[in-house]
Simulated scan of single mutants.
Amino acid sequence: MASHIERRWLDTGSGPGAMVDVIVYDAESPDQAAYRRLIAHSSACQTCRQLDENGWATSTCETAQRLYRVWRRLWRPLTAAAATASPEGSPTT
C-alpha cells in the first residue's frame, strides 16, 4: 500500500490551530475496507444497536455477523471453527 505525507490544518479547539504533517494512505487494504463496511453498517442499523437487559448487544443482525466474519478472515486468517464463532464478548444463542 502506497502512502505519502501531506501538510494539513489541525484545529486544536482552543487557541491557534497548526499545520501538521500527516501520512495519507492512497488505498485501503482489503481488511481495512471490510472493517469500515462493518462499522458503517453497525452504526446505522437499528437491529445492531439493540441492547439486552444487561446493556450487551443482542447480536441478532445477520448482516453484521456476515460482515464480521469477512473482516476476521481478512484481518487474521482463522480456522473454520473460530471464524464461525460469535464475536468476542457477545452472548451466544
Rank of each mutant, 00 (worst) to 15 (best):
44 A>D: 15
77 P>W: 00
21 D>R: 04
88 E>A: 12
3 S>Q: 08
2 A>F: 09
1 M>T: 11
6 E>M: 06
19 M>R: 10
15 G>L: 02
82 A>K: 11
84 T>G: 04
38 L>A: 01
44 A>C: 07
30 P>I: 01
8 R>M: 13
56 W>E: 15
24 V>W: 02
80 A>F: 05
30 P>R: 01
69 R>W: 03
78 L>A: 06
32 Q>K: 01
17 G>Q: 14
40 A>I: 00
60 T>M: 10
62 E>L: 11
70 V>I: 15
2 A>K: 15
22 V>S: 02
63 T>N: 13
58 T>S: 08
47 T>I: 15
7 R>A: 13
15 G>W: 00
56 W>M: 14
43 S>R: 14
9 W>V: 15
30 P>V: 01
42 S>H: 07
82 A>H: 09
49 R>C: 08
29 S>C: 08
9 W>N: 13
45 C>R: 04
4 H>C: 08
34 A>V: 01
84 T>W: 04
69 R>C: 03
32 Q>C: 00
38 L>N: 01
37 R>L: 15
70 V>D: 14
63 T>L: 12
67 L>E: 00
77 P>V: 05
6 E>V: 09
79 T>M: 12
57 A>D: 07
16 P>Y: 04
89 G>K: 03
59 S>R: 13
59 S>P: 02
23 I>H: 02
50 Q>S: 08
91 P>Y: 11
55 G>S: 08
7 R>C: 09
14 S>V: 14
44 A>S: 13
45 C>V: 04
75 W>Q: 14
50 Q>I: 08
22 V>P: 02
34 A>K: 00
52 D>I: 09
69 R>I: 05
52 D>E: 12
70 V>T: 15
89 G>E: 07
